[in-house]
Design a protein around this nucleic acid. Structure first.
Length: 487
DNA sequence: TTTTGAGTTGTTCGA
DNA sequence: GTCGAACAACTCAAA
């Protein structure tokens, strides 16, 4: 086979899109036949590989990518199952591919895998080209004056704003040369059907793929962004971007989002930029999560601040199950947890309240909460999930001060003032008047009876009493700070 | 090297 | 009902 006809493999991973895909564009422009390849791993291959709803979502987006490749280029996505390095080498050998191109994934186990692929490729004389992953800033490039990773968000944020040079997203390749023969491929629909039916059902509620992602972005920028600052905390409103599921599987890139916001901003009248800045700040929190994870790869399992290793978490499976099921007796917490189970998603405010309740009121370890979210969130992202759980628990980088204990009743009144969110997800409370919707145990007996609610029968009484739980948490945190096991 | 100012997202209490 | 202060120092980052 003449050398110039040797194909190039584009290894797709967390970048299930065609536009703004550096590896694909470079491969396409090289003029050689391109083999788009995805390698499906076993769900339990590693502690933090996707296994829950996000795994099913991944499959849906692989299917969408295959369809897009077919429609646009007449090309098919090859899907293989197994170890990435072994499969890549096998496909390369079968197709006589000369090179493998891919975009990086900034997670410890993914980087380790890239390392194994790199070693295997160089042994076989296969060229490897890697491109930046789905962040605005490459990890390791945002450092303090002492060349250390930032531990506090605000200076990190300012440094990103000072140094980030935005480049417009790259277009999709115009043409994708296809190889004359293709290696064998697995039908992803079958892989999807092997997953738990419940996970499939949740993932399939969401429109998958790059086009759906682009539509979500357009809707956000044109009709929500201007009010993002004012509205994003109201849990019943569809005021957040809901881009996280697409960002996670790479159906959209962070750069595409940043670009859309910036371009829309230029059409704003002066003084309206505040909302966009707040939204962009959220994107930079995501950057900070990734930078922190790579500086401290143990972040998903170990407290960032070591003294928290001694924290007296209570392990109680009954409490864990009540929380997971949305049966804590605190309506906002229960609404959030039930939305998670039904939809695989919650607005950020709801995540915060539910997580804070789990860690502070129930004194359960953040790792148990993190694992539940990992399994249930359609947008389960290792860096963000680990970082934010530690933030809530107080053990993380630039974490919430320990005395900040959310009061689930006040949070409910503040961010679900009409009760629409609670009523949507906790229908047994539909007829409870607003005054008692977030604290039904304080309603007079006749009021509850009139709306058909008996506590303990239709809806649980509070699993813990707020005041007592708060005091318990505060004293545990106070003792921790005093303990000599520090550092 | 030392000093200085600052620090996502809250709640409770008392004036 | 509204408002400001206390909550707890401590660590981080920059000058």
């Amino acid at each position: 086979m003449a050398k110039r006809t040797q194909p190039v493999i584009v290894w797709f991973r967390r970048d299930l899109r065609i536009a703004d895909h550096a590896a694909l564009l470079e491969a396409a422009q090289g003029g050689k036949p391109v083999i788009p390849l995805y390698i499906w791993n076993k769900p339990d291959e590693a502690r933090w590989s996707h296994r829950g709803v996000a795994k099913a979502w991944q499959a849906c987006n692989i299917i969408a990518l295959d369809q897009a490749l077919q429609a646009q280029y007449g090309s098919r996505l090859i899907v293989r199952k197994g170890d990435a390095a072994a499969e890549l080498m096998m496909v390369a050998a079968q197709t006589k591919a000369s090179a493998i191109y891919f975009n990086m994934v900034y997670e410890p186990q993914e980087l380790a895998q890239e390392e194994r692929v790199s070693r295997a490729a160089s042994k076989q004389g296969i060229e490897l080209k890697q491109y930046p992953g789905n962040l605005l800033t490459a990890p390791g490039t945002i450092l303090t004056r002492n060349s250390q990773p930032y531990k506090v968000f605000t200076p990190f944020y300012r440094q990103v704003l000072r140094t980030y040079r935005h480049a417009p997203p790259q277009p999709a390749p115009e043409k994708l040369p296809t190889p004359t023969t293709s290696p064998t491929s697995i039908d992803v629909a079958i892989l999807l059907k092997e997953l738990p039916a419940e996970h499939q059902a949740i993932a399939q509620r969401w429109p998958a793929g790059e086009a759906a992602a682009a539509k979500t972005l357009r809707t956000f920028v044109t009709s929500k962004l201007a009010r993002y600052g004012a509205d994003h905390d109201y849990v019943a409103m569809a005021s957040t971007s809901v881009l996280s599921p697409y960002l996670e599987c790479g159906a959209i890139s962070a750069r595409q989002i940043w670009d859309a916001v910036e371009r829309h901003l230029s059409s704003y009248p002066p003084g309206r930029e505040e909302s966009a800045a707040q939204f962009e700040r959220q994107l930079i929190w995501r950057e900070f999560s990734y930078h922190t994870l790579l500086a401290r790869p143990e972040l998903p399992d170990q407290p960032y601040h070591e003294r928290f290793a001694a924290f007296p978490w209570v392990r109680d499976d009954d409490l864990l199950e009540c929380w997971q099921a949305g049966l804590t007796g605190y309506p906002l917490v229960d609404a959030a947890m039930r939305q998670l189970s039904a939809e695989g998603w919650m607005p950020g405010r709801a995540r915060m309240v539910a997580a804070s309740f789990f860690v502070k009121h129930l004194m359960q370890s953040w790792v148990d909460g993190e694992q539940w979210f990992w399994e249930r969130l359609i947008d389960a992202d290792l860096a963000c999930n680990a970082f934010n759980w530690q933030w809530v628990a107080g053990s993380g980088a630039d974490a919430a001060p320990y005395f900040r204990v959310f009061n689930p009743v006040l949070q409910g009144r503040k961010f679900d003032p009409t009760g629409e969110y609670v009523r949507r997800h906790v229908p047994e409370l539909t007829d409870v008047p607003n005054r008692y919707l977030h604290n039904p145990w304080e309603a007079p007996e006749p009021v509850l009876t009139a709306c058909g609610v008996t506590l303990g029968k239709h809806y649980p009484p509070p699993i813990v009493e707020h005041q007592a739980a708060r005091e318990r948490a505060l004293s545990a945190y106070r003792n921790l700070d005093k303990s000599p096991s520090d550092m």
